[in-house]
Amino acid sequence: MIDYHLHSTYSMDGKMTMEEACIQAIELGLKEIVFTDHVELCWPGNNTPFDINSLSGYLEHIDEVADKYSDKLTIKKGMELGLEPDRLDTLSYIVDTYPVDFIIGSVHVIDGQDPYLRAYYDGKTKEESYIRYYTEILNIIKRFDKFSVLGHLDYVKRYSPFQWDKDDYKIGYDIIDEILKLLIQKGKGIEINTSGYRHISEAPMPHFNIIKRYKELGGKVITIGSDAHTTEHMAFRFDDTIKSLQNMGITSIATFSNMQPSFITL
């Protein structure tokens, strides 16, 4: 049991300290966790709302808790990079300057708007809002690959104001296919983000059919993360997720050290 997507109070929206997360991980019987706090260089209305104030201090704090709980828990260094097309050089500098074990590459801002906010959907149909999001992901990962896995691929579904339909995962499927092929070509993985279970769809992000397609195309690097910002959501619905992966014939998930994957059997 490992959780590869956790936000502490080093993220503006994080509600748990690193110590609280470690104690909860031990209580849950987790063997390994990664802190993946936000590095978001720009966000609507504020230039650096999620930027970790001191990356060196953040990484030093992870070292401290890793040493403190080393007899009970493996703790890795990570970050969640907000991928934006006009800031890729700065993100590249951050990755090169502050080495970590694991990086989630996520797209949160498209055309100056975050799909978390209603404004992103104004003037768009459901299809247009989804396809614009996937198109931006594809364009960015063509230019940038300094990450381990792509985060919450269909994040747009979680906050969409449009009525949910069970076939929403098919919207933009041709673009999703290109994203998956490019990830595999670049040796990159995909995360299964279980916060999606808290949506009406009762499905992780991305949808299991997208994960199945990644496997069919030859993808092997899959991580599982709760995207927890509070202790109560850590390892959320992991048992269900693992069973579903096993039913798909997926027999292993990835862990990372120094940005290099290794695999554990489910």
Rank of each mutant, 00 (worst) to 15 (best):
Q185E: 15
D240T: 10
A119T: 13
I94D: 04
G14F: 04
L28E: 01
F238P: 05
V100Y: 05
F35K: 00
R118H: 08
A203S: 13
D13E: 06
D165E: 14
V65D: 07
D37T: 03
G196D: 05
T125P: 02
L153R: 11
Q185V: 12
I110D: 00
L183H: 14
M259G: 08
I222C: 03
G29Y: 08
Y159V: 04
E136N: 15
Q246S: 09
K243H: 04
D114H: 04
I103F: 06
K157R: 14
P99R: 11
Y130E: 01
I200K: 14
E128S: 13
A254R: 07
P99E: 09
R118Q: 09
L28T: 01
I131H: 02
H233V: 01
Q163W: 00
L55F: 13
S257I: 13
F238M: 12
R158K: 15
G78C: 03
D167K: 13
V221Q: 05
W43H: 14
R143L: 15
H7F: 06
I141Q: 12
R132E: 15
I75A: 05
Q185C: 02
D167T: 10
L55Q: 12
G225S: 11
G78S: 03
R118T: 04
N193R: 09
N139W: 04
D239P: 00
Y134N: 07
F236T: 02
P204Y: 10
V149T: 14
V156G: 07
G45T: 01
E127I: 11
Y93S: 11
G187I: 12
I103S: 06
N47E: 15
V39Q: 12
K166H: 03
I264N: 07
I131G: 02
Y121A: 06
N47M: 15
M16K: 03
D177N: 14
F263K: 06
P204G: 03
V156F: 08
H61D: 15
D111M: 01
M1C: 02
S54H: 04
F236G: 00
G189C: 09
R237E: 12
T36R: 04
T125F: 11
V39P: 00
E191D: 15
L266T: 13
T48P: 00
T74Q: 13
G249D: 06
G196N: 08
M79W: 08
I26T: 09
F102G: 02
N47Y: 14
Q185N: 14
A228G: 05
L150G: 12
I110N: 03
S226A: 09
D114E: 02
F256Y: 15
Y159W: 15
G112V: 03
K181S: 14
V109R: 00
L217Y: 13
A235N: 14
D86L: 12
P85A: 11
S226G: 10
Y69N: 09
K243M: 05
L180G: 13
G105H: 07
I242G: 01
I224R: 09
I141S: 11
L138S: 07
A203K: 15
